[in-house]
Amino acid sequence: MKLRVLAVLLLAQTVAAQQLNFVTCPVVRDTKTVPCFLAEYEGETYYLTVQQDISAEQYPPQLLHEVLVEGTIQAGPRVCGGIPLKPVKLSVLPEVKQGCNTILPAEPGIEAPPMRRPAGPSTRQPGAAPAAPPAPPVRPAPPFSEREWKVLYDFDSAFLFSRDTRTVSQAADYAVAAKAKRIEVEAHRGATLLSNGKVLVEAEAIAAQRAERVVALLKGLGADPASVNVRVVSAPPQPDGKSDPETRVVSIRVLP
């Protein structure tokens, strides 16, 4: 019994040790295909992501900006020369940092992982059928019940990326179809515990800015303005170093 408890404790420690939260300059590694984005922390190189398309869920960081990395070390071989972090949340910090400007050249033996599209225009495999037009959006159908959507943000950002506007659109479509009596929008300001013990807290106004943008989009997409109720939570939470990305959130709850 004692052994089991010890094993669980060891496992917990291992899991905790695999989580890394740090702020650093991203490093771009060119390859013969698309570039990889890396980060160095305490003498080790980590693989963050690869150049993607706008439809991707994970967006790369940006040179001239520091990146907040909140990720878990993934076992297995190095990717693009770095230890992979997965899952990983990458936040481009808003202020310009001129020193973040390193592009490493392609080197033999360093390959980018499989990517959604090449560095040039998108391609169609030989013999493949022409791309079908996108399917028309599926109209939400009854029965309608209470549903919730969450928009997760980069640190100190209220920008709604393509992936986020898709989420808000789904909520708006559902609210319109369900003739929602009430839409509850709750916007939060987040905080992050870094691996070095430092705590980062988002700008005070960020929750209000997030709420404002989401509400404008909901209303513009047809949600009944009278049904929208907004709550802005500007007090930052106590960060735990594990689930901190989830504190930078706007939740949209639709009640038919």
Partner: peptide
């Protein structure tokens, strides 16, 4: 290297972006 272009690199495509004029 397509880089430091507001509303291209800054909208989730990353900076820099290895692409072409047609992007």
């Amino acid at each position: 290297w397509l880089r430091d272009v507001t509303h291209i690199n800054s909208i989730g495509l990353g900076n820099p972006l290895k692409r072409t004029c047609a992007t």
